[in-house]
Amino acid sequence: MTKIIEADHLTKIYKGKVKAVDDISFAVDEGEIFGFLGPNGAGKTTTIKMLDTLATITSGKAFVAGHDVHREPGAVRDSIGVVPQELTADDELSGMENIVLAANLHHVQGSEARRRSAELLKLVDLEDAAGRKVRTFSGGMRRRLQLAMGLVHMPKVLFLDEPTLGLDIQTRKKMWDYIGRLNKERGLTVFMTTHYLEEADSLCNRIAIIDKGVIKLSGSPAELKQKLGGDILTLELAETPVDLTEFFKGIPDVSDVTRTGQVYRIKLPRTEKALPIIVEGVVRKNIEIKEISFTKPTLDQVFLEITGKSMRDEDASESDSVFQNFIMERATS
């Protein structure tokens, strides 16, 4: 398989002080959907900015579509489409005018620009709104328009930075459908960052989890979940001074135990054997079980395991930021 994106020991330090990306290496195969997951400030957008030539590379090398990002930025820009997380389509222009402008900026002119624009507007179900000013569009329509704008010059690689941010679940799923179809029908390589783990799980062939500028883990969603080491039992006990961590760790077939207050997260490679022993042990110690739940590994758990934070916490903290509110406001208007 041809590598269409290659990052080799990439590092980005802003103003000589802030290390946003720290010596990361990865490769993306042609025709694959590659997901970049990480908490806020993990270095996802900075990585995209280095790959799409918006940010300089402090050290390391990167190649996109066979071109050195540092030495041949023009050739890289010719080969890529970029859909940023900001809603950048012009409010005062119509959907068609926005997409034709994007075509013109990629050397596609005249009737060819209009033909491709019309075709893409149809693809993202916006043909009826083609003549309307974008300020009348809903958030989902704006996102779909931006997706079309990123494709009008038929790029080899499409960078999507949080493509479904601020969208409701229905619209989000529609976007996944478009992205999936583009990948399957046109063989488009997609490099995307997302906050939605189910999005990464359902769309991406491979995923890398980045935290504090470092890639912690990468692989297919199935591989990553497998690396969790089994199912997870969450056990909430009544208030007790007794710490059961060591007790649980001593049970065969328990691979790991973490405790937060009275809540224990117990990793079980073979649930059917360990579960009765755990429950029986707690009952024998006369400790009341307040809640017990059992889950198959999910990407959210992988994320929690790697970064120490749940993606839901990330969503909550991000929604507090002024910038995020601004994005949401435009997306939902």
């Binding site: 820009r77 010719d78 890529i80």
Partner: peptide, 13 residues
């Protein structure tokens, strides 16, 4: 500020 400039900067112009 609205990100339009970045979109233009990623175009081969």
């Amino acid at each position: 500020q609205l990100g339009f400039l970045n979109t233009v900067l990623t175009a081969p112009i």
